[in-house]
Amino acid sequence: MTDASRTTSTDERADAAANAVTSADRRFASPVTDGGLAVATAGPLGPSGVDRPAREASVPPASSGGRRRLVDRRWFVIVGGAIIPVALLLTWQLVSTSGLVPVSMLPSPEMVWLAAVDLAQRGLLGLYIAISTQRVFIGFAIGAVFGLVVGAIVGLSKLGDILLSPTLGAVRAVPSLAWIPLLILWFGIAEDSKIILIAIGAFFPVYTIVAAALRHVDRQLLEAGRAYGLRGIRLFTAVQLPAVVPSVISALRLALAQAWLFLVAAELIASSMGLGFLLLDSGQNGRIDRIFLAIILLAVLGKLTDALVGLFERWAVRKWA
């Protein structure tokens, strides 16, 4: 056992030893230490119902004895994720050079690359990416804030739930494109209408997930909080808010993805810049290389921003969960 557990009384040592045995089964049959303390899984005694991501992932197995499986190695995680994109790229190259499909239907990777270089030389590529990213982030921020506030109202107050849920559920059912004519009439064709549409897209995942998470905060913890004199805002900050932090973050992640989805719809509103405009414009001009470019850029940007939120998520889960 570790130093820390040696200082504990006999019963704790027995507990910790028993727990170490069970956890060792899962952790490649090696005693696991974490910060000098044998990690004792609380089992049925642990605060139940709280969604706690397993900590095993962040615990490196002991250096002696235990062999790490391939799927646990960091380099393999990165390389493994790249296998399919690289294979797709190779297949694409092979198909387009073999002449099986005419280039008017499937441009070669090189043509897409040249289209990117061409746009970059005209100073358009950076501009389009920047304006699209800006629209996504502003719309996402507005939608997420509203989603958090309304989600909190609906999740915490029975009255709020009764009054707001049916209406919001109906509004959520409206497809993104259906908003466009209305938004143009109300807000014109400038940035406002586009950002509002993206905000609508980002609002609903946050609202839905936050409201549900708050409604399902562990009742036992809530009762314990109340029994110890917490009410209203103090109960919210001490129990409910920390309990839903993991859910809030996954809601934000989903909302960001949704914001990118709504971007293209937003940029169909008489825009003259952005990746959605690039798609629309290229479609009308038959520039299939630029269509491919825009699609690839949307995929890569979406994945990159998602990865950023993922890093934030890992930090927050370590801190709160």
Partner: peptide, 15 residues
Amino acid sequence: DFAGHRPREVSGGMA
């Protein structure tokens, strides 16, 4: 000695 530990890091009896 365990003041700074989180509940998941201690045994059921300690919790």
